[in-house]
Design a protein around this nucleic acid. Structure first.
Lengths: 342, 342
DNA sequence: ATTGACGTGACATACGTATGTCAGTTAGTC
DNA sequence: GACTAACTGACATACGTATGTCACGTCAAT
């Protein structure tokens, strides 16, 4: 009835506490026969290690690091905030969290930073950078030092990370497309697709998702070629002016994130555009205000609090060699309108 | 630098460990002056009790109970499932969870069940029943026994619970209205509002939310008087046939939950209705399938996993007299379309 | 001066696990 | 059958907290 302890295991297996400990903690010098008896006893009694007691005895602390892209980006800023918030709450859970910013645009610099990490002082890393061959190697190196690695927000599909914490951006793009299709019920026309840069795989995947759903379910809507701003405010304005002039049938704007502020500014300066349906990615101070102002119809978002907590839980579970609760770690693609804003 | 312990507090305050313990655990026999010195030391060193070590020493277990409405209801079923799932994961966190079903339609029976609880064997209760004066009294009784009570899914605003875990149904109704308004962009017409029963405060609040947003932002859409099924499949069919015949301008159906299956069945039997926009509440097996079939455009939902885990976390925090992390316990009003279904 | 009530500190034990030491046992080899 | 090497068990200590016992103060009231 009551939870079995190592003592119960020892008694059941007919061995000493020391032997149980050797088996449980993977030490050497145990005869296979005895190891088997211990494992059988664990199985039979349904023993699970009391992680908290173990951590107490071990004086364990979990030392985690978030590697985030530097530079002015509202989305990353909200993530960093959420990390610090979670860190301040989790101190009581024995976890120490740090944040490191790297120049994600420069693969060389990223790798330099990753290589320079003192892996002996780390238990886990959550990494949010674009995948390059060099990054892949750096991650292999980190893993080989026994440090757990999760891909964070942006997946690193070829780096063989221990886990990915984030949403499926292809589905996110489909969700955006589905919303646009429903918001423009029975209407025909074109959609302007904008982003700051198309190098991030996120944008590419979102675009794929958008195209797929539009061609399948809403062929009456046509997405224009993606316009990339590259941090150039002139460019976005010119693009918009051009689009509104050229495309009589322009009905909507889809902003794939990382360019929302520029897009909104340009939108405000061109009064002819305020009848457009606007769907954007990422809930930040900027998009939040735009939702309240009715300048954006809907935002596709991922809850940054969940993202951060999920990454921390997953890293902890890896360190404890414990199973993760998949349903809880599934990050939701959220749809935010003004009325369910939080 | 390192986390201070009770020993550090004792040294800092110049008193013995026993005295620190007396202060920390609210026992008697401490001179005010010494109590103050202990409190000052706690403050100065930033001491926080190590809950896990404390629970270990106390052999503590958290014994929680969910009180759910009985009867065939897909939403409640998914909640019960989520409770059992969470329970099986949380055993390692020293929490024991049970579920009790009561006939929520009979206030007398509810109170009978609540009164018969063995409060000595409980630390916390999550209650999902309609509020009545009798329920209010029963909750006061439970609280007076030192058991923590959270209102679950349905708020009990007059019962002075320790917490409410759930969404703001007024906002949920507004969200539904906002979606309908956007899905029916530039269109004029009426919306059929259906539910199984209007006695639950949830439905009432959702209806208020809907009306408010329609009249403010989408006056071109008119919500018809709420139709209540009362578990009568004939009634819903008749209502729908009637509505489609009478209301030439019928554009949408808003199902406020707890009647989705009947609504969908009737919808399937009336081919003239399949051009309607349909927004429903609660993500269950039924609505999930309907989303996949394109019979429902969007579902307003609350994540049952989050609901249950939040209730458990809040109850734990109450037991530990620990602060809750508000941002994490805020239950989101989710908008689900086929593409972001989970 | 004595009593009793209140305050206090020293100490011990416990929770479940980790980790170390060290003497003792077993198995495999020749 | 002797000799390693591999294995095993008994025991101690520790982690941070809770809780109990008990002797010893202090102080006011008798």
């Amino acid at each position: 009835m009551v939870k079995p302890t190592v003592h119960d295991i020892a008694r059941e297996a007919g061995v000493s506490l020391s032997t149980v400990d050797r088996v449980l903690n993977g030490r050497t010098d145990v005869r296979p026969k005895n190891a088997e008896r211990v494992r059988a006893a664990v199985e039979k009694l349904g023993y699970v290690r009391d992680t908290y007691a173990a951590n107490l005895a071990k004086q364990r602390r979990y030392r985690f690091l978030f590697v985030l892209p530097e530079g002015l980006n509202h989305f990353v800023e909200t993530i960093a905030l959420a990390v610090h918030e979670a860190a301040s709450v989790q101190v009581s859970d024995r976890v120490d969290v740090e944040v490191m910013f790297v120049n994600a645009a420069d693969p060389h610099a990223v790798v330099e930073h990753l290589k320079r990490l003192n892996l002996a002082t780390l238990d886990g890393v959550a990494i949010m950078v674009p995948e390059t061959p060099q990054v892949r190697d750096a991650i292999a190196h980190i893993k080989s030092a026994g440090v757990y690695v999760v891909a964070f927000v942006s997946d690193l599909p070829n780096s063989n990370c221990h886990h990915f914490v984030g949403i499926d951006n292809f589905s996110a793009g489909k969700t955006a497309g589905a919303l646009l299709g429903r918001f423009l019920r029975n209407e025909t026309g074109s959609i302007l697709v904008v982003t700051n840069s198309m190098v991030a795989r996120d944008s590419i995947e979102r675009r794929f998702g958008l195209d797929e759903i539009l061609s399948r379910d809403f062929p009456r809507l046509k997405a224009l070629p993606t316009v990339e701003f590259h941090d150039d405010p002139q460019r976005i304005r010119a693009t918009l002016d051009h689009a509104v002039a050229d495309q009589a049938g322009l009905k909507a704007i889809y902003s794939m994130g990382s360019g929302n502020a520029a897009m909104l500014e340009a939108l405000r300066e061109n009064a002819q555009l305020n009848h457009l349906v606007v769907v954007a990615h990422d809930l930040t101070a900027v998009t939040r205000q735009a939702l309240l102002n009715d300048e954006i119809d809907a935002v596709i978002a991922q809850n940054v609090g969940h993202l951060v907590r999920s990454a921390l839980r997953v890293l902890r579970a890896k360190c404890d060699r414990t199973l993760i609760f998949e349903a809880q770690e599934q990050i939701r693609i959220e749809i935010i309108v003004r009325e369910n804003l939080y």
